[in-house]
Design a protein around this nucleic acid. Structure first.
Lengths: 390, 390
DNA sequence: CACTAATGGTGCAACGATGCAATCCGACCA
DNA sequence: TGGTCGGATTGCATCGTTGCACCATTAGTG
C-alpha cells in the first residue's frame, strides 16, 4: 500500500496522481452519488425511482475538504476557518444535503429528542379530555422546539409497561410524564424508571418518599386565594368539588388550600359540602345537583378544576339558581374556554406556558447534569363574572 | 503495543492466547460489558456512574450464538429454530437488553416513526384551540401506536420552513399534516414536499390541482344533513357562521351543504344571514350578536364548527333569546364538550377515531407502496337539545 | 534558529444494528 | 456411499455520522 509513494520520483508527479480522485480510496463511492448505484434496488416505496441521498462525503468532495471537516463545519464546531465553513455550507445547500439523524444519534449517543408520556384516564379511557392538558402539550412542544429538541408523544395505556423503553432503546434523551388519572400506577412506574437512571420529570405535586423530579403549580396557595376571594365577597357555604383521593394529589392540595382559607376566616369546614368528583364537566354537573338536593342551599362553589366548575354552573342553571347572584363559582386552571362561559368563569390560572418551559428546562438540566433550581409555578387569581363581580 | 506478541516464542502460547475469548478479535470488546471500560468517562448526566448497555454481541455470547442470529431471533425472523429463539430471548431478558433504535434505523433505513405536523393559527398564535384537533391528535397517536409506529409531534410556526426535514433527515418515514389556519401557506409547503418524494397525508378536503393525499370528512353531506334537520323542524331564517374564504376549505364545503339544503327546500339563500367567523367561541359569540343586531330575528343558526355554535348560544343568551325555543342551533364536529353545553348541542359528528385510523392507514400504504382506497370519513347527525327536540 | 503553541485540517475507527453470501449439518434419496 | 437439498447459522460488510489522534502550517518566543 505504501508502494506507489516510494516508487515515485520525489518531485512533480505526486500531487498530480492524487488530484483526480483524491478521496475515492476512502470508501470508493463518492462519485456515484447522483445516479442510483448499479447493483442496488433502484426503486423504493410508491414513488418509483429514488435518487441516493447525498452524504457528508459528497459535500466534502464538492467543497474540497475532508469529510470530518464537513461534519465540524456544519455543526459550527470550533477549528474551522470561516472560509471553509462557507464553502461547506454552500456545497450542502447545493446538494440539498441533510444530516442523517440516525447516523448522528448512533455515533453521538444522543437523540436530541424528548418523550412526552401522557397517562390515559383509566375510567373514561379518554386521554386529555381536560383542555388544560392540551395547553400543557402545546407549551411543552414549543419549549422543546425552542431548544432544538424533537418531541415524541405517547399515550400510555394503563396496561402497558414500556415507558422506560423510550430511553432504554435510546429513542429519547429524557422523559416527561403528564396526566391525571391513575396516579399511583404511574408513580410505581416512575420508581422503576429510577433504577434505569433515566432523566425524567413529572408534572404534579411532589409525592413524598418517591424518587423523581416533580414540577407543578402551587396548588395550595392558588386554592386558598380563590376561596379567600369568595369569602371576601360574603360567601359562607362554599362547596368543594373534586376527587381528593390519593389518585389525585393535585386536587388534594387544592382541598388543603380550601380548608386553610376557611380556617383563616374562622369558618367551619362542613364535610357535607365536599363532593368527590373526577375531573370532567359531566361529573361536576351531576355532583352539584346531588349536593344541592342533599344539603340544601349553598352560596358558592369552588371547583378543583375548570371543567368541574363549568359542570357545576350548568347544574346550577338547571336548578334555576343564578350565577353569581345566588351561587358564586370559582374554578382552577383557566382553560381556554373559561372566559367564554356564561358568566365568564373566575378561576385560578395555571401558567401553562411557564410550566412547559420549566418542565423542559429542568429535564435538560437533568440530562446535562446541571442542578435544578425552581420546581414550582406561581398561580394567579383571574376574576371574571362567575364569582360575583370585581 | 504489538510488542508482547513479538517477544513470545513461536510455538505454544499463541493459540492459547486466542482460545479463551474467541469473539474478542471481532471487535475486541465483548468481554468488558458489565463494567465500564477503563479509559472511558465513567459518569454521564446527573446520576453518576452509568453501566455500559448490553449490545447484541453480549446477548450472542451469553446465548452461545452469533450476533446475526440474535438479531433475527429478536425480530422473530424466519430461519431461527424455536430453541435458539428461546435461548436468545432469555439472554436478552437477563441482561435487560434493548435494541438501539438508532443503530437499527441507520442500518435498515427506516425509522418506524411518523411525524405529525400541526399548523398554528397565525392570528391567535394558539395551536389546537379547537378541541376537535385534540381528539384527532389522540386518535392519531393511538392509531400509530397500534401499528407499532412512534409519533413525533411538531407545531409548525408559520414562519419556519422545515416541515420536509423530518423526512429528509430520516427522522420519520412519513408525515401527517393537520390544522386549520394558514391553509394556503400550508398547501404551498406540501407542493414543495412532493418534489422530495416524501410520503405524507393531509387532513382536509381535496384541494384541486394540488399534489398530495387529502383525507377528510364529507363536509358537504354533513352540513346538508344538519340544515335539512333544521328545515324539517320548521326553521326558515337560518344563519350560517363560519369563514368560507380559501383559507378554510372545510368551512367552504360546509357552506355548500348549507346552500344545497336550502335549495332542496326551495328556500332562498339570504346573503345577510352569513357571518364570516374564524373557528373560536369568542368569534362566534360576537358574530351572532352583530348579525342579530343587523338583520333582526332569526330562528336558527348553523355553526361551521361546534366552537362557533357554542359561542352563538352564549351570544343568544345574552340577547335573551332562548335556545332552542326562539333559535335552534346546530354545530359541526361533536367535540367532547358538545353534550355538556346547555342545552346540549345538536351537531354533525366527525368520527375522529376513524379519521385518525384512516390517516395513519393511508400514510402507511403510501410508505409501503400499497394503493389507497378510501379517503373520506362519514359524518352523522347527533340530535341533542339545541335544535328543538328530537 | 530551533522551540513550542495555536490553528486548521486529515484519516481512521468506532457506534450497534441488519442484510446477504457463504457455510455447515443432518436427512433423504438413488 | 456419495450427492444434494434445505433449514439453521455464521461472518463480514455496511449504514452515515462523530470523536479522536495525528499531521501540516504558521506565528510567536527565548
Amino acid at each position: 500500500m505504501g508502494d506507489p509513494l516510494r516508487v515515485l520520483p520525489a518531485g512533480t508527479s505526486r500531487p498530480d496522481l492524487k488530484e483526480p480522485e483524491p478521496r475515492r480510496a476512502l470508501r470508493g463511492r463518492a462519485a456515484d452519488c447522483y445516479h442510483p448505484r448499479p447493483g442496488e434496488h433502484q426503486e423504493a416505496g410508491s414513488t418509483g425511482m429514488r435518487v441516493k441521498r447525498p452524504t457528508s462525503f459528497d459535500i466534502a468532495e464538492l467543497a474540497g475538504v475532508s469529510q470530518s471537516t464537513v461534519s465540524r463545519a456544519l455543526r459550527n464546531d470550533a477549528m474551522v476557518s470561516e472560509d471553509t465553513r462557507q464553502r461547506v455550507a454552500q456545497a450542502a445547500r447545493l446538494l440539498n444535503y441533510k444530516v442523517d439523524v440516525n447516523a448522528r444519534n448512533l455515533r453521538s449517543q444522543k437523540t436530541n429528542t424528548l418523550a412526552l408520556l401522557l397517562y390515559e384516564d383509566p375510567v373514561t379511557s379518554q386521554s386529555l379530555i381536560n383542555p388544560f392538558f392540551l395547553s400543557m402539550l402545546s407549551s411543552i412542544t414549543k419549549a422543546s422546539a425552542r431548544r432544538g429538541y424533537d418531541l415524541l408523544i405517547s399515550f400510555q395505556q394503563s396496561s402497558d409497561d414500556w415507558s422506560a423503553d423510550y430511553a432504554a432503546s435510546k429513542r429519547a434523551d429524557g422523559l416527561i410524564f403528564l396526566g391525571y388519572g391513575d396516579y399511583l400506577r404511574y408513580v410505581d412506574k416512575i420508581s422503576r424508571l429510577d433504577e434505569v437512571s433515566t432523566a425524567f420529570v413529572t408534572w404534579g405535586p411532589v409525592v413524598p418518599g418517591q424518587p423523581g423530579h416533580f414540577i407543578g403549580s402551587d396548588n395550595v396557595h392558588g386554592a386558598r386565594e380563590g376561596v379567600r376571594h369568595l369569602i371576601a365577597r360574603g360567601r359562607r357555604r362554599i362547596a368543594f368539588l373534586g376527587d381528593i383521593s390519593e389518585h389525585c394529589p393535585e386536587f388534594r392540595d387544592r382541598y388543603r388550600g380550601y380548608v386553610e382559607a376557611l380556617g383563616e376566616a374562622g369558618l367551619p369546614v362542613i364535610e357535607a359540602l365536599y363532593a368527590d368528583a373526577a375531573a370532567s364537566e359531566e361529573v361536576g354537573h351531576q355532583a352539584i345537583l346531588d349536593l344541592i338536593d342533599r344539603e340544601g342551599p349553598i352560596d358558592a362553589v369552588f371547583g378543583a378544576c375548570d371543567l368541574l366548575a363549568i359542570g357545576a354552573m350548568n347544574g346550577l342553571r338547571e336548578r334555576s339558581l343564578r350565577v353569581p347572584e345566588d351561587v358564586a363559582v370559582v374554578g382552577f386552571d383557566d382553560i381556554v374556554a373559561a372566559p367564554f362561559t356564561s358568566p365568564p368563569l373566575t378561576t385560578i390560572r395555571q401558567d401553562t406556558a411557564a410550566a412547559g418551559e420549566l418542565l423542559v428546562e429542568n429535564l435538560l438540566r437533568l440530562i446535562e447534569g446541571r442542578p435544578i433550581e425552581t420546581t414550582q409555578i406561581a398561580t394567579s387569581l383571574v376574576v371574571r363574572g362567575s364569582c360575583g363581580g370585581r
